[in-house]
Amino acid sequence: MIIKINGKYYKIKKIEKNPNGKYTITTENGKKYEFKNVKIFSEEELK
Rank of each mutant, 00 (worst) to 15 (best):
T26G: 00
E28D: 09
I12E: 00
I40G: 07
L46S: 07
G7Y: 02
K13N: 08
M1E: 04
I25A: 02
N6D: 10
L46I: 13
N18R: 07
K8F: 09
K47T: 12
Y10W: 08
N18A: 12
N6Y: 11
K14Y: 10
I40P: 05
K47Q: 14
I15K: 01
K8M: 12
N6Q: 10
Y9T: 05
T27I: 13
F41D: 04
N37Y: 15
K47M: 10
N18P: 02
K14D: 07
E34I: 15
Y23L: 09
I2A: 09
V38P: 15
G21Y: 01
I15S: 01
L46C: 15
V38E: 04
K8T: 10
I40S: 04
K8S: 08
M1W: 15
E43K: 04
Y33D: 00
N29D: 15
K36S: 13
E16L: 06
E34G: 03
T24S: 07
N37E: 11
N20V: 03
F41V: 13
E44M: 07
K17I: 13
K13F: 11
P19F: 06
I2C: 15
I15P: 00
Y23F: 14
N6I: 03
N37D: 13
E43R: 02
K47R: 14
G30K: 01
K32G: 02
K32N: 05
N29I: 03
T24W: 08
K31S: 09
I25D: 00
K8N: 07
E34H: 11
Y9F: 12
K47D: 12
P19R: 11
K4M: 14
Y23M: 06
T24A: 05
N18S: 11
K31E: 13
I3V: 11
K17F: 08
Y23K: 01
G21P: 00
Y10A: 03
K4D: 04
Y10C: 08
N29V: 03
K39H: 12
G7A: 03
Y9S: 05
I25N: 00
Y9D: 03
F41R: 05
P19N: 09
K32T: 14
I25H: 00
T27E: 01
Y10Q: 06
T26W: 15
Y10L: 11
N37W: 15
F41I: 12
M1Y: 14
I3Y: 02
V38H: 05
K17V: 11
F35H: 03
S42V: 11
M1F: 14
E44I: 09
T26Q: 03
K8W: 07
G30I: 00
E28P: 05
K11Y: 08
F35G: 03
I40H: 06
N37H: 15
N20W: 05
L46H: 08
T24N: 04
V38Y: 04
K14T: 14
Y9V: 06
I15Q: 01
N29Y: 08
I5P: 00
F35W: 05
F35V: 15
N20T: 06
K22C: 15
Y10E: 05
K14S: 15
K47A: 13
T27C: 13
E43F: 03
K31N: 10
K22Q: 11
K13D: 06
I5W: 07
N29G: 14
K13S: 11
S42H: 10
Y23R: 01
K39C: 15
N37A: 09
K22T: 15
T27R: 01
L46T: 09
N18Y: 05
I15L: 09
K17C: 14
F35M: 12
I3D: 00
E45N: 09
I12H: 00
V38T: 04
K22E: 10
E44G: 10
T26K: 01
K47N: 13
K11N: 06
E34Y: 14
P19V: 12
N37S: 13
K39L: 14
E28S: 12
F35Y: 08
I3P: 00
K4S: 09
G30L: 02
I25W: 01
F35T: 08
E44T: 07
I25L: 04
T26F: 10
Y23W: 14
K17G: 03
V38I: 14
K32E: 12
I40D: 05
K31Y: 09
I25Y: 03
I12M: 02
K11P: 03
K47C: 15
S42I: 11
E34R: 08
F41Q: 05
M1R: 07
G7Q: 06
S42W: 14
E44D: 13
K17D: 02
S42E: 08
E45F: 07
Y9A: 04
I12T: 02
N37P: 03
I15M: 07
I3H: 01
K11V: 08
G21M: 02
K14A: 13
K14P: 00
I40Q: 05
K14L: 12
I25R: 00
T26Y: 11
K31F: 10
K4L: 14
K11G: 04
I40A: 05
S42D: 09
E43A: 03
K14M: 11
N20C: 06
E44C: 13
Y33C: 08
K11R: 14
F41W: 12
K47I: 14
K8G: 04
K36P: 09
Y33L: 05
G21F: 02
G21A: 02
I12F: 02
G21H: 02
E34K: 07
K31W: 10
I5S: 02
Y9N: 04
K8R: 13
Y23P: 00
E28Q: 12
I12C: 04
N6E: 08
Y33G: 01
K14C: 11
E28N: 08
Y10T: 04
F41S: 05
E43N: 04
M1I: 11
K47Y: 03
I12P: 01
K47V: 13
G21R: 02
E43T: 03
T27F: 15
K22N: 14
E34Q: 12
N6A: 13
K4C: 15
K47P: 09
N18H: 12
I12S: 00
I3W: 03
E45Y: 05
K47E: 12
I5H: 04
K39W: 10
E16D: 06
E28V: 14
G7F: 03
K14G: 09
I12W: 01
V38F: 09
K11M: 06
F41C: 15
N37T: 14
K36T: 14
I15N: 00
M1K: 07
K39A: 09
L46P: 09
K39V: 15
E16F: 08
K11W: 07
E44S: 10
K39T: 13
K8E: 07
K39Q: 13
K22L: 15
T27A: 09
N29E: 14
K17E: 05
Y9K: 04
N6L: 10
K13A: 14
P19G: 11
F35A: 10
T26I: 11
E34L: 08
K31I: 10
F41L: 11
E16N: 03
K22R: 14
K14E: 10
K8Y: 09
S42R: 09
I12L: 04
T27V: 12
N29L: 06
E44V: 06
K22M: 14
E45A: 09
V38R: 03
N20R: 07
Y9I: 07
K17T: 05
E28Y: 13
K32R: 13
K36N: 11
N6P: 00
I15R: 00
N20Y: 06
K13R: 11
I40R: 03
I12Q: 00
I5C: 08
E34A: 05
M1G: 08
G30R: 01
K32S: 09
T26R: 01
K11I: 09
E34T: 15
I15D: 00
M1A: 07
I5G: 01
F41K: 05
K36W: 15
K22G: 14
E28M: 14
I3R: 01
N29W: 06
T27M: 15
I12V: 14
G21Q: 02
I3K: 01
Y23S: 02
K8V: 12
E28H: 13
K13L: 15
K39I: 12
T26A: 01
I25K: 00
E44Q: 10
L46G: 07
Y33I: 06
N37V: 12
E34W: 10
I15A: 03
T24F: 07
K39G: 07
K17Q: 10
S42P: 07
P19A: 12
I3N: 00
K14V: 08
Y33W: 11
Y9G: 02
E45V: 06
T27G: 04
K31L: 12
K4R: 13
N18Q: 12
S42G: 08
N6F: 13
K36L: 12
K13V: 15
K39F: 12
I5A: 07
T24Y: 09
I15G: 00
I15T: 01
K39R: 13
Y33Q: 01
S42T: 13
I15F: 07
I2E: 04
E43Q: 05
N20E: 10
Y9C: 12
L46R: 06
F35L: 13
E44F: 02
I40E: 06
T26D: 01
Y23T: 05
E34M: 10
K4Q: 12
L46Q: 08
Y33N: 01
I25C: 02
I3E: 00
F35P: 01
K32F: 06
S42Q: 12
K31D: 12
K17M: 13
L46E: 07
N20Q: 06
G7W: 02
K31M: 13
I2W: 15
N6H: 12
G7R: 04
K36I: 11
K32H: 07
Y10M: 12
G7V: 01
N20G: 07
I15E: 00
I40M: 09
E43L: 03
K36V: 14
I2D: 02
K8D: 04
N18G: 14
V38N: 04
I25V: 14
S42A: 09
Y33F: 13
N29K: 06
E16H: 05
I3M: 07
I15H: 00
F35C: 15
I15C: 11
I25S: 00
I2K: 06
N37L: 07
K17H: 08
K32V: 15
P19W: 07
N18M: 14
I3C: 09
K47H: 12
N6T: 03
N29Q: 09
P19I: 11
N18L: 13
